[in-house]
Nucleic acid binder design. Structure first.
Lengths: 137, 137
DNA sequence: CGTCTTATCGCTAATGATTCTCAATTGCAC
DNA sequence: GTGCAATTGAGAATCATTAGCGATAAGACG
């Protein structure tokens, strides 16, 4: 009954994704793909999708769904427990924020209504100083 | 130069959508469409999409984007200012919740980082009592 | 009530994002 | 090295949503 760890191989493309992700911005899989190709990589789009998903499962990257329905990714900070973001709607730059007490709050609300297995999402979006200055957003 | 109010017509299908929406569940446009057809309506899918969007713009319905990227709709309560939900991941049933102080919190965080035009999303999801009892979820 | 204008319909084709298929590669254990 | 399953890349397939368009009918007017 012990699932032998699925054996993740460290391939060139896996490494490329990890490297590219080393920033502070939220971008779509397509956007990361473009960037990689622009840097000379020959990585395929499907591979980027697969890689990002795998990384998200491992907790190596954060994934959020934008208003328009696309999934955005970025590498997350070190240790990583549960956390939230303040993201720029124009350039994707994000900072992690702390919402103390919210975990508790969420569970209390859940209990109050009899809902179990509570999960929550908090997303703050805005326009960062740079984008505001540049007249974007 | 004055846009005369676009003249919204009350059609049979508009009425059908409004009637169908008279529940407490969050469902996708496709799901509402199915339901309408099941009840004998001959309304088209595109019409349901158009109708729901229009209603969302008017503030008559709430729209949220699920984890999987689909947009879910439900009629919202009367007056309607900004509010949040605790939604069942299995059946879509939702209750409105109050998150006092959060509006302020959001703006304070935004200011602290120099981000403007702050917008926020809070979604709590869980499994409602009925679904839990039925073993779904 | 009949006519006219045009918003709205419903169908179908088009988009856009994401996933799947599958033959060709290639980590990596032996 | 060898062998084989995990992984890749390109394109087809899928899904949700939107756009295009001829047909229909809401609502204003006489």
């Amino acid at each position: 009954m012990n699932a032998p760890t699925p054996a993740p191989r460290m391939t060139r493309q896996r490494r490329e994704i990890l490297d590219a992700l080393d920033t502070r911005d939220f971008r779509s899989a397509q956007s990361w793909h473009e960037r990689l190709r622009a840097e000379g990589s020959t990585i395929g789009l499907a591979t980027v999708y697969r890689g990002l998903q795998a990384l998200a499962d491992q907790g190596e990257v954060d994934a959020v769904v934008s208003e328009s329905g696309e999934t955005l990714y970025r590498r997350c900070e070190a240790g990583e427990e549960h956390h939230h973001h303040l993201r720029c709607r124009s350039c994707g730059k994000a900072v992690e924020i702390d919402v103390p007490e919210f975990e508790d709050f969420a569970h209390r609300i859940g209990d109050a209504h009899g809902y179990g297995d509570i999960r929550h999402t908090i997303e703050l979006t805005g326009v960062c100083p740079e984008c505001a200055a540049a007249g974007r957003g």
